[in-house]
Simulated scan of single mutants.
Amino acid sequence: MNFTVTPVAHVRSGRHDAVDDFWGGTECRIELTPEYDAESLSGLRDFSHLEIVYLFDRVDPASVETTARHPRNRSDWPLVGIFGQRGRRRPNRLGVSRCGLVGVEGRVLVVEGLDAVEGTPVLDIKPWMAEFGPRGEVRQPAWAGELMTNYYLPESER
């Protein structure tokens, strides 16, 4: 079974390169496509964070990975299957990110910390609710913590 999805918005950002780190402090705008009016964003102002589902549209479908690889090509980290990591060369090229909501300006969301570049198609926008966070203790391998060390560090703190 196949599905067709169409963007509900696009990212407007000063960032044009999908780099692996330094997304903290990055502010961008999410502009709704013409078929959605400002009313579709009603109620979002009451939330501090959003969850954004988007398409890694710059990833060539021929480069999608389906097997195990070393995250960020670091041989000192273990071989991990594509579903055991959050790399962008995923089978459906979908990204999911939580970001802070700075403001709502008509048909535009101003957000902070969204790891998406200029023009990225946004497929869905959801308010983040604490109850959707993990229940119980969270565990992850050491390499994942190392990988994320600079991910949300502001670029100015390199």
Results as ranks from 00 to 15, higher is better:
residue 26 T to W: 07
residue 33 T to S: 10
residue 134 P to R: 03
residue 67 T to H: 02
residue 102 V to L: 15
residue 49 H to Y: 06
residue 128 W to E: 09
residue 114 L to T: 02
residue 45 R to K: 13
residue 43 G to C: 11
residue 70 H to K: 01
residue 29 R to Y: 04
residue 37 D to F: 01
residue 142 A to H: 12
residue 156 S to Y: 00
residue 57 D to M: 04
residue 27 E to P: 07
residue 20 D to R: 13
residue 107 R to H: 04
residue 113 G to T: 03
residue 148 M to E: 10
residue 114 L to S: 09
residue 53 V to G: 00
residue 110 V to H: 11
residue 87 G to C: 06
residue 102 V to N: 11
residue 44 L to I: 04
residue 74 R to S: 00
residue 98 R to M: 08
residue 36 Y to S: 03
residue 128 W to S: 14
residue 94 L to K: 02
residue 137 E to M: 02
residue 19 V to P: 00
residue 11 V to K: 07
residue 49 H to L: 04
residue 146 E to V: 10
residue 81 G to H: 09
residue 97 S to W: 01
residue 84 G to S: 03
residue 77 W to T: 04
residue 136 G to V: 05
residue 35 E to D: 10
residue 44 L to D: 13
residue 64 V to P: 02
residue 17 D to F: 04
residue 80 V to P: 05
residue 80 V to G: 00
residue 132 F to Y: 09
residue 149 T to S: 09
residue 36 Y to I: 02
residue 129 M to L: 11
residue 2 N to L: 12
residue 27 E to R: 14
residue 66 T to Q: 09
residue 129 M to N: 10
residue 12 R to W: 08
residue 65 E to A: 02
residue 48 S to G: 15
residue 40 S to V: 07
residue 89 R to W: 01
residue 146 E to Y: 06
residue 45 R to Q: 14
residue 44 L to Q: 07
residue 85 Q to H: 06
